[in-house]
Design a protein around this nucleic acid. Sequence first.
DNA 1: AAGAACAACATTGTTCAACAATAATGTGGA
DNA 2: TCCACATTATTGTTGAACAATGTTGTTCTT
Lengths: 219, 219
Amino acid sequence: MRALDSATGLAEHVALALRDRIIGGALVPGQRLSEAKLAAELDISRNTLREVFRLLTRDGLLRHEPNRGVFVASPSMATILDIYRVRRLIEIPALTQAWPKHAAVDRMEAAVRIAEIAQNKPDWREVGSANMEFHTAIVALTDSPRLMDFFARIVAEMRLAFGLLGSPEELHAPYIGRNREILQLLQDGQGAKAAALLDDYLTISERNLMSAFARISRD
Amino acid sequence: MRALDSATGLAEHVALALRDRIIGGALVPGQRLSEAKLAAELDISRNTLREVFRLLTRDGLLRHEPNRGVFVASPSMATILDIYRVRRLIEIPALTQAWPKHAAVDRMEAAVRIAEIAQNKPDWREVGSANMEFHTAIVALTDSPRLMDFFARIVAEMRLAFGLLGSPEELHAPYIGRNREILQLLQDGQGAKAAALLDDYLTISERNLMSAFARISRD
DNA sequence: AAGAACAACATTGTTCAACAATAATGTGGA
DNA sequence: TCCACATTATTGTTGAACAATGTTGTTCTT
């Protein structure tokens, strides 16, 4: 038997580890992942690795081509556009109709605080994580298990894109203060205004991502 | 080797078949699916069956409990509520901002026509399928691969709920004419009005489903 | 007789080795 | 050079085996 895993599921455990390597940029987008090599490297059987692949494919981090293998997903401009369209569709109504005392508001507040602390270290990777958590908490305001599942996939894809782009400071730093404002408005019962601010945020963030993307595309 | 499969992937092929059995009601919601028995019955290996399970779990048709097995998902009222909330969130903006000459409009029209023909046979199961296709086409108006993926899962879960409820006539018949109207408004460039009509449709449909659900819950 | 401890039993989780099916690669001939 | 064909590598699938966990049934105690 392998090492004792914390919860359940060796596959899920390994998937977590592989996800970090993908998001962390250790695996280049577009790169093919050989079943035999990776299975040996991760010290799991091919069958289990295949399950890991399926899990990560579901999250949009891997792409599976029949009889050819799996590849690290490579986000394109179309990917970014689609992601932000989805984010707009989900996050804005979530904020608009949110109940200011919803438990997820505490999650939002905690995320903002963590981001502010990490900003002073500074630890931009943690700022990025906290920012994602902030938006995940926004979706949690809906209490919709399906939306939360769906958004988790979106978050994974965004992290992949961020890791690909590097320069976490310029990608995450500008939004910490804005998140605090959004939170404040929501707590004051002004969900609509908070949503408007979020809309701005999404526009700016999307533009930033796209231009960073254009930059590396010229290489 | 097994029978020659049409496209690629024995697992996907079997998943299709199993999905039909689940949706068709051959498998009772909540029922546990034994790996050994099902693998023998479907004439595939346990490993492949496990992959099938994962595919259907992703679609929300199966529920996986670690070390206990997989079970046919059993939709609850909470499921229906969540599904309709998601449908509203996705379908209404899709229609509102749709381009009347989008290719998906043809899919909508084809779906309406098929439903009208099936209504006269009458073949209520086909009416149901056509109705689903109509709404799938609405989501396709967005050109968002992520939304389309997501909605496919929602559709699968709805079909499971419909199959569970039976009485396809009262569940599907009332909406054929309304779908035609929605299509007409969209083609006339009145996306907003079409969306308003769709909103009504969703309200009525949700209420119908819920009351049908309450009926069987009293058994 | 009721309930708890414990021993079978069954099922899922994971691995391994093998072969089939398909794609990628290399080689020879026109 | 480029096509056809054999070779090789990789994925797809299987079956058997064992470990880990859950379930069930039995016995012992009170």
